[in-house]
């Protein structure tokens, strides 16, 4: 290591130094070799930086590597998410049931409030503070590109959500096997549940990140994310209630397209054979609607990624 603090030959900009250099009779200016050496070790490169950003963001979503106060909320939410699964397993074992009382695919739908709170609290902490404290330009001074930053943040939040939603399913699955329920049936249900929560994680992470990347204020991001999820769900379910009262069951299936959690519900009803949580259990009414669910789902995931890419085009200006 060199010691840059002693005798740095940087000429201080200013009249006295400049005058001293040009004064007649004084020795000419020289640059002393004080032992600076260039780095010749291995360069870890772009992939390593991207991986580090991913790992740091993923840990950050659960408050690891942050203050104790930041760990409280995500850990509580993880606990709240897993607790019903443990209760369900206990009930299944002691009541000697032949199947779990809750489908794997239904679990996330029931606990959507917890998932929403997790996205709303962790998506802004992942991106808003980088904007607020203007640290994003520092990231881009490393050998990562815009796409790396966006992909790392997106993947990190989606992974954090997947952990949150898949862990209770794993508890259910292990509990079901311990209770000696049918292996094939449970494995199939567990696999479908995993597909469902994977898509849910991607969808929620994308929506949460796009909203929070707009604002450097954390509180506003939190509010906006919660508002979006809750308002769309309240709107969709109240209109579905009306449609059910009018016995327009085909309408119920189509309206589910308009809020994130009902989008997942409709998708898994059509493609994964789940029992829909919609009123009257009426999922997508026909193949066109089923395809529409898939297209909207993929469209939102791709669209949020594209929006994030656009957002970070001019990020230093924020």
């Amino acid at each position: 290591m060199t010691q840059p603090d002693t005798a740095t030959p940087h000429a201080t900009p200013g009249a006295p130094a400049a005058a001293a250099g040009t004064r007649a009779g004084s020795p000419p200016d020289v640059i002393h070799n004080i032992g600076y050496r260039s780095y010749e070790g291995p360069r870890l490169g772009r992939a390593y930086a991207r991986k580090s950003l991913f790992a740091q963001s993923l840990r950050g979503a659960y408050g690891l590597g942050r203050s104790a106060k930041s760990k409280v909320l995500p850990m509580i939410l993880l606990g709240v998410m897993c607790l019903p699964a443990l209760i369900i397993v206990a009930v299944t074992v002691f009541a000697d049931r032949s199947d779990l009382p809750v489908q794997y695919t239904r679990y996330a739908v029931i606990l959507q409030a917890v998932i929403t709170l997790f996205v709303a609290s962790q998506a802004p902490q992942s991106v808003s503070r980088d904007l607020r404290f203007k640290t994003t330009p520092l990231y881009f001074s490393r050998p990562i590109e815009r796409v790396d930053y966006v992909a790392a943040k997106y993947a990190a939040l989606a992974s954090a959500l997947f952990l949150l939603t898949a862990l209770p399913l794993l508890i259910l699955y292990i509990g079901a096997l311990l209770a000696k329920l049918s292996f094939g049936h449970q494995t199939a249900g567990f696999a479908k549940g995993l597909v469902s929560v994977l898509l849910l994680s991607l969808l929620f992470a994308g929506i949460g990140l796009v909203i929070s990347a707009v604002t450097p204020r954390r509180g506003f991001g939190v509010a906006a994310v919660i508002a979006l999820f809750v308002i769309t769900y309240a709107a969709v379910s109240s209109v579905q209630g009306v449609a059910a009262a009018q016995e327009r069951y085909d309408v119920i299936g189509w309206i589910g397209l308009f809020s994130p959690i009902t989008l997942i519900d409709g998708f898994q009803t059509w493609f994964l054979g789940a029992h829909s949580a919609f009123p009257h259990a009426s999922g997508p009414p026909n193949a066109a609607a089923g395809i529409a669910y898939l297209l909207v789902l993929l469209g939102i995931v791709a669209g949020t990624f594209a929006l994030l890419m656009r957002r970070y085009e001019k990020v230093g200006m924020a």
Binding site: L117, A120, S121, G219, F220, V222, A223, I226, A227, V230
Partner: peptide, 9 residues
């Protein structure tokens, strides 16, 4: 300081 979150919850 976390009024929005507490209020929404």
């Amino acid at each position: 300081r976390h009024a929005v979150v507490v209020g929404l919850v």
